[in-house]
Amino acid sequence: MTSTSSSEVLLRVNDLRVYFELDHYHQRDLRDVFVSAVTKPLSFFFQREELYFVLRGVSFSVERGMRIGVLGVNGSGKTTLCRCIAGMMIPQHGTIESSAEVRAIFDTGTGIMPELTGRENALLLARLFFPTIRDVRPIVEEAAEFSELGHFIDVPFKKYSKGMQSRLLLSLISAVPTDILILDEVLDGADVFFQKKLAQRMRSFIERAGATIFVSHSPEQIRQVCNKVMVLNQGKITYFGDVEPGIAAYLSLKAPAHAGP
């Protein structure tokens, strides 16, 4: 990893390509597999699956201090790109060069054990998010306070509203600075006041260290959080640069779909 005082590259993505077999979009029970092997043996054993490319040669670099807003219509490859960077998926082609610590959150509506309280879930999640920290209790206490959940922190997680779940999980994941933080459409559950508070917290810890990759469909959220925009369309980057031109590029993508006769 190269390192300079002004633009330290935390992550370099080179010619990333990810594809799936189209058949994999269909859920098939073993019984269905058995039926098609018996009724259509030739096509079952010899037909090659069609490939669906989700990412088609994506290349970019993330420098320290960047808050990248990723925009794109549904199915443009945003989540797949984030999962590759988080190390959850392995691209079939291309490389991701990084020694940075990556933390990622793709949904805020989930705890691990719904029967346990918010605090107990947060303790467990903190162990999973921050494996190198021995005592996670101070982090959980800080996150509980930031989330403003009050006495609800000791109520079973299953009783939480979506907004409360979102508050707790976002407070927790942003409690410890990381090199790269990935947030994939996760602000939608929180109310507008908490979104602003969280955006401020993220800015403050990005100033201390790291970078953020922030996926959203909301130009307003992108304006609040980001200083760069990436537009993905059909698995390719069509724009990477300043925020306002990026939002304009995204809206021009969407325009034809909304244009009625």
């Binding site: 988080a86 990622a104 949904d107 691990i112 999973l128």
Partner: peptide, 15 residues
């Protein structure tokens, strides 16, 4: 059964 958790965070499935 833990699909939502696995989709939501970078959690090691083997844990």
């Amino acid at each position: 059964t833990q699909a939502q958790l696995l989709r939501s965070f970078k959690v090691n499935p083997w844990v």
